[in-house]
Write a protein that binds this DNA or RNA. Structure first.
Lengths: 244, 244
DNA sequence: TGCAGATGTTTATTAGAGTAAATATATCAC
DNA sequence: GTGATATATTTACTCTAATAAACATCTGCA
């Protein structure tokens, strides 16, 4: 009914103003904000207060701060990494498990594989083959692909090709968190072998336009991963990643 | 290969330490951290530096800070609100649209409706009826249910009942963002009427254990919403929410 | 008992000064 | 001129010290 009369903190005002300016498009990603010294006078607050506000905006992913001449706060798009970390932190406090992640995968990914088989252009197939080749190369070198970005990319690319940013984001964080759990379980060499073989089966079906085959192969791949990880003992929470 | 030799900022060290302590469970949600004064001596940094670190941890959702006697930093679970905002901010910079959100819904929600019809207990059905009743009550009062939490709850509860935190989170943010877009489009009274009628159809199928019916009704509901919003003109980005 | 005020604790904000890092610019050798 | 090196400048980062505001609790008076 009435507006709350509680005086917010000064830094909150600053955060809100900058945030809204960015979301409204008045401040575009890439654009520089004035340096501390000037912002202090513009907002009429002390350096300390201003810096706290900038720190918060930085944590939210709205700005990056560079030092040195020509540096200062720069507006940036909120990126997947910031968001992924937030999701991972949230799920850490829920009972996220391999099976809960796998359930989501089993619904979404076969759908995406089918779509890929039906709609992929020659170029898209080439990219997917590239990703697959990179995985193979890593495996030859390291005898392990668990925990690499490339392993995830195979799945995320199917989502990216759908041109649906929501789908892509979901695939990204589900696979990232799952991979994080995996790498703590330290599966053996045969696990990576199975993954590569499955990817290959999916890829082949997509290449030949075999929608049913792609859907089935993907479903089976996810089930296999879930089972093999289940055998590897009790599931651990996604633990501390490097992010700060 | 070698560890990066770049000196991180002092506040980064503090953030990492506290964050890891919380993720490892050494610091439990609800637990109080020592007041600024003591943290300053424990970390051996100035008050300013410490406060910046606390501000960042606050933005990440790991702590809350209360002022006054007995106040201070309190460890808290990273909650859905923090995470939802982060996702909304991220998707703001992608081309999220009603159709991209609807595509995800069309895959996940019919599945959940089917599952509900197959497995819901009498108690769970009662809760769902309660939510539905609340929606009806709001509609009678306001002639509009768009933008209310109750509208979302109907969908999120189906996910919550699946006991899959990942699923629940996805349903929460997809429906929250969609509702945010909706409320900016200001659909008329008949839109709310259609939504309520559709919810009722889904509810009825779940109550009678009609899995096929529930699945189909939910799918149709989502398509209907997508179409009606499509007619309402070009889609707008999810705009500024109140969060700070 | 119950209310008003005093007291102590803790965060919020300010001011000012000095340090360290990154960049830009000028200088010098060739 | 070109390239490398030194210098200067810009900018964020850190620290100290002190005041103001919020909050909880205790105290004393009616």
């Amino acid at each position: 009914m009435f507006q709350s009369a509680t005086k917010d903190k000064m830094s909150t005002h600053i955060i809100r103003q900058v945030r809204e300016a960015i979301l409204k498009g008045e401040l575009q990603p890439g654009q520089c904000l004035p340096p501390e010294k000037e912002l202090v006078t513009q907002f009429g607050v002390s350096k300390h207060t201003l810096r706290e506000a900038l720190r918060t905006l930085e944590a939210m992913g709205f700005i990056e701060i560079k030092r040195g001449a020509g540096g200062g706060p720069v507006v940036s798009e909120v990126d997947m990494k910031t968001t992924r970390d937030s999701i991972a932190n949230f799920l850490h406090f829920q009972n996220v498990s391999v099976s809960s992640l796998s359930e989501v995968r089993k619904i979404l990914e076969p759908y995406l594989a089918r779509r890929a088989a039906e709609t992929f252009s020659a170029q898209e197939i080439e990219i997917l083959e590239d990703i697959d080749a990179k995985c193979q190369a890593i495996f030859k070198r390291e005898k392990n692909i668990v925990g690499t970005r490339e392993e995830i990319d195979f799945h995320v690319f199917l989502a990216r090709a759908s041109r649906n940013p929501v789908m892509e984001m979901i695939l990204d964080f589900v696979n990232s968190i799952l991979t994080d759990i995996k790498s703590h379980m330290k599966p053996g060499i045969e696990f990576s072998e199975h993954v590569l073989a499955s990817h290959h089966k999916v890829l082949k079906a997509i290449k030949t336009g075999d929608a049913d085959g792609a859907e089935k192969a993907m479903y089976q791949h996810i089930c296999e991963v879930e089972e093999e990880l289940g055998e590897l003992g009790e599931e651990k929470k996604p633990t501390v990643n490097k992010a700060v």
